[in-house]
Simulated assay, not measured.
Amino acid sequence: MSETMQAGTTPEMGMRRFGRVNWLGLATLCQREIQRFLAVWTQTLLAPLVTAGLFLLIFSIAIGPRRGDVMGVPFTHFIAPGILMMTVIQNAFANTSSSIMISKVQGNIVDTLMPPLSPMELVLGYFAGGVARGMVVALVIAAGLWLVLGLGVAHPLWALCFGVLGAAFLSGLGIIAGIYAQKFDQMAAITNFIVTPLAFLSGTFYSVEALPPVLHEITRFNPMFYLIDGVRFGMIGVSDSAPALGLVISLVSVVAVAAVAWNMLRRGTRLKA
């Protein structure tokens, strides 16, 4: 009998002790999180497309004819990438936060915590669902923009990188919010007073160069600004900041929220009785 069995543990537990990944468990969690939003695609995929279309239509009718070009491109083309990215990050946040919140309220969060999954595997599994939903939403809206506006993608790789990072960043924030919130009204408060304002005030509908100096500098500390600005550069080739700087800040932001989410899951913050 091996030392592992003599110590009263199973070989699988011994494997995990040496840092091996539970690929089956991770794949199962990823599949569950993806199937969650695919099962209600009219709410998670069709609704964001309609909402983005309404934003674009309203701003085009109300402001577009008088606004003229912004940074050398038509106003509707300028705001289209911002609307796309705003929708992506909102859906990525909703996917992870609602998954954890509903599990807590229904009392079945233990079904996720009991399997032999490490905190990092849990983070990656939730990230997979949020990023997948964000990317599917991005593809759907991008296809709509191409059909309606003829808007293509100037720099596909940049657009893809910022799109994935944006979905990952908000997926991490969604995990943190889902763990922290104890009731649905607390989650609604986080969404309405933190996530939505940060998304709207990140250059989604305007160039930050038009802001007063104080607000301009404050915006530079908002990670969502660099995500939206980066996707705008990827799609139409113009931006308010250097794409390379935005990429670095976005990467650091994703690592930071992932670390906080990992620590909360490791400690069982607001998850264990």
Score class of each variant (00 low, 15 high):
residue 53 G to I: 01
residue 54 L to Y: 04
residue 52 A to C: 01
residue 75 F to L: 07
residue 52 A to L: 03
residue 85 M to D: 08
residue 53 G to D: 04
residue 111 D to H: 13
residue 103 S to V: 01
residue 109 I to P: 09
residue 104 K to R: 14
residue 105 V to Q: 04
residue 79 I to Q: 08
residue 69 D to K: 05
residue 87 T to Y: 02
residue 100 I to S: 10
residue 107 G to S: 08
residue 75 F to V: 13
residue 82 G to I: 02
residue 59 F to L: 14
residue 71 M to D: 11
residue 93 F to M: 06
residue 76 T to H: 00
residue 95 N to S: 11
residue 88 V to H: 13
residue 66 R to C: 01
residue 65 P to W: 08
residue 55 F to Y: 13
residue 83 I to G: 06
residue 78 F to I: 14
residue 78 F to W: 06
residue 70 V to W: 02
residue 56 L to S: 10
residue 117 L to C: 07
residue 53 G to E: 11
residue 57 L to M: 10
residue 77 H to I: 10
residue 69 D to V: 09
residue 92 A to E: 07
residue 95 N to Q: 15
residue 106 Q to D: 12
residue 94 A to L: 05
residue 87 T to V: 06
residue 109 I to T: 01
residue 82 G to Q: 12
residue 108 N to P: 00
residue 100 I to T: 12
residue 83 I to P: 07
residue 92 A to K: 02
residue 90 Q to S: 12
residue 69 D to R: 06
residue 107 G to E: 13
residue 99 S to Q: 15
residue 62 A to T: 11
residue 91 N to L: 02
residue 74 P to H: 04
residue 72 G to S: 07
residue 54 L to I: 14
residue 116 P to H: 04
residue 53 G to H: 10
residue 68 G to Q: 08
residue 95 N to G: 00
residue 72 G to W: 12
residue 91 N to K: 12
residue 100 I to A: 09
residue 103 S to A: 14
residue 71 M to G: 01
residue 84 L to D: 09
residue 119 P to T: 00
residue 76 T to N: 07
residue 74 P to W: 08
residue 90 Q to L: 03
residue 88 V to A: 12
residue 96 T to H: 15
residue 97 S to C: 12
residue 81 P to S: 00
residue 100 I to P: 07
residue 63 I to S: 03
residue 101 M to S: 12
residue 78 F to Q: 07
residue 80 A to N: 10
residue 75 F to A: 11
residue 81 P to L: 03
residue 99 S to K: 12
residue 117 L to N: 03
residue 101 M to K: 11
residue 88 V to K: 10
residue 77 H to D: 15
residue 74 P to S: 01
residue 97 S to Q: 13
residue 102 I to H: 15
residue 67 R to K: 13
residue 76 T to F: 01
residue 103 S to K: 15
residue 65 P to C: 04
residue 95 N to R: 13
residue 100 I to G: 12
residue 86 M to R: 13
residue 89 I to A: 02
residue 58 I to V: 15
residue 84 L to R: 07
residue 65 P to S: 05
residue 57 L to Y: 15
residue 54 L to P: 01
residue 104 K to Y: 05
residue 85 M to Q: 14
residue 56 L to D: 01
residue 100 I to E: 07
residue 93 F to I: 02
residue 102 I to R: 14
residue 53 G to R: 11
residue 92 A to S: 15
residue 70 V to M: 04
residue 71 M to H: 10
residue 115 P to R: 04
residue 66 R to M: 08
residue 105 V to G: 02
residue 71 M to F: 09
residue 70 V to R: 08
residue 103 S to C: 09
residue 53 G to L: 06
residue 90 Q to I: 00
residue 86 M to K: 10
residue 66 R to H: 08
residue 118 S to E: 03
residue 107 G to T: 03
residue 93 F to V: 02
residue 55 F to V: 04
residue 62 A to E: 00
residue 68 G to W: 01
residue 56 L to W: 02
residue 90 Q to K: 09
residue 61 I to N: 11
residue 62 A to L: 14
residue 102 I to T: 14
residue 101 M to L: 12
residue 57 L to N: 10
residue 75 F to I: 13
residue 91 N to E: 08
residue 91 N to C: 00
residue 60 S to D: 10
residue 80 A to W: 12
